[in-house]
């Protein structure tokens, strides 16, 4: 211990100082300043205008739509992520690695592409567009399209959080439950779920943050109709383009606030259940 410390001390102090300064500078420039700017710009003309901007009907509609999209996409991807992680980690089957790669796909493709594929599939000139049109079903440039694009983009978050943990835990406990005569559901809720609940919570939080913040994919399928198909990130862009900088940053600050709350909840959970997490998180 003391050896190691003296070895570390052999670095010249100016180097240590410079490295720390560099790290702090990087942190301030890349993370802290943008965050401060968002709030500073939003409050530039005081709290009155800030709250007025957030209570404007189109802003409220954007907030509602964003929450609705998250409320649909997150449960769907939670169920999917659980099912996928369960299938991948507790069973052996043909095509498993292909499935794993597919789950990761939304991480690696650009969100713009994620949006465009839906236009190419369900747009008026897309593969299924004319068919859907006959039944008066409109997917693209409607709330449905926004939800679909968000579901695609946020698909991997829960699954990716669960798979490594469940792989590490193995299926011994489930096998034991099965030998004791528990049904599949009972095994899942009494054995698997308690083991993975923190990782699941973490995945859901990340998924929620991304669902609310997604811009690229949603921008392609949205149609940008104020108060109707504009989510909060899109509404920020609209306001910015209308020279309403205070309003734009006010809505942006609300998004940032959502993200901060998400992080705070996560930290709180981690602090409170540090031991359980340490025992369960293998990554």
């Amino acid at each position: 211990m003391s050896d190691r410390r003296s070895a570390a001390k052999r670095d010249p102090s100016w180097l240590a100082g410079a490295l720390i300064a560099l790290a702090v500078l990087y942190f301030v420039l890349v993370l802290l300043l943008p965050l401060v700017t968002v709030f500073a710009e939003a409050l530039r003309r005081g709290f009155g205008e800030y709250f007025a901007a957030l209570q404007e009907p189109d802003a409220l509609a954007a907030i509602r739509l964003t929450l609705l999209v998250a409320a649909i996409a997150v449960p769907l991807n939670t169920v999917f992520g659980l099912a996928a992680a369960w299938a991948v980690t507790k069973f052996q089957f043909w095509g498993k690695s292909a499935l794993l790669t597919l789950i990761d796909l939304p991480f690696s493709i650009s969100p713009v592409i994620s949006g465009l594929v839906f236009v190419l599939l369900y747009g008026a000139r897309g593969w299924f567009g004319p068919l859907l049109d006959q039944y008066d079903i409109h997917v693209i440039f409607s709330v449905t399209g926004v939800v679909l694009a968000t579901v695609l983009v946020t698909l991997p978050f829960v699954a990716r959080e669960l798979i490594p943990l469940m792989q590490a835990q193995g299926s011994d406990e489930e096998a034991a439950a099965a030998t004791l005569g528990a049904s599949g559901w009972r095994t899942f809720f009494l054995v698997t779920l308690p083991n993975i609940k923190w990782a699941l919570m973490y995945g859901v939080l990340l998924c929620t943050a991304r669902a609310m913040g997604e811009f690229g994919a949603v921008a392609v399928v949205s149609g940008h109709i104020r108060g109707e198909t504009a989510t909060m990130p899109l509404h920020v862009e609209i306001l910015y383009n209308e020279y309403s900088f205070v309003a734009a940053f006010a809505v942006a600050s609300l998004l940032a606030l959502f993200a901060l709350v998400t992080l705070a909840v996560k930290s709180l959970l981690e602090a409170r259940f540090a031991q359980q997490l340490a025992a369960q998180r293998w990554r």
């Binding site: 008026a124 897309g126 440039f141 109707e228």
Partner: peptide, 20 residues
């Protein structure tokens, strides 16, 4: 009356793709 704004060419494309 609802508005959608953007680059003109992009907006024409959106109408072609089904923006109503």
């Amino acid at each position: 009356i609802e508005m959608s704004h953007g680059g003109s060419g992009r907006q024409a494309r959106a109408v072609l793709d089904g923006l109503e």
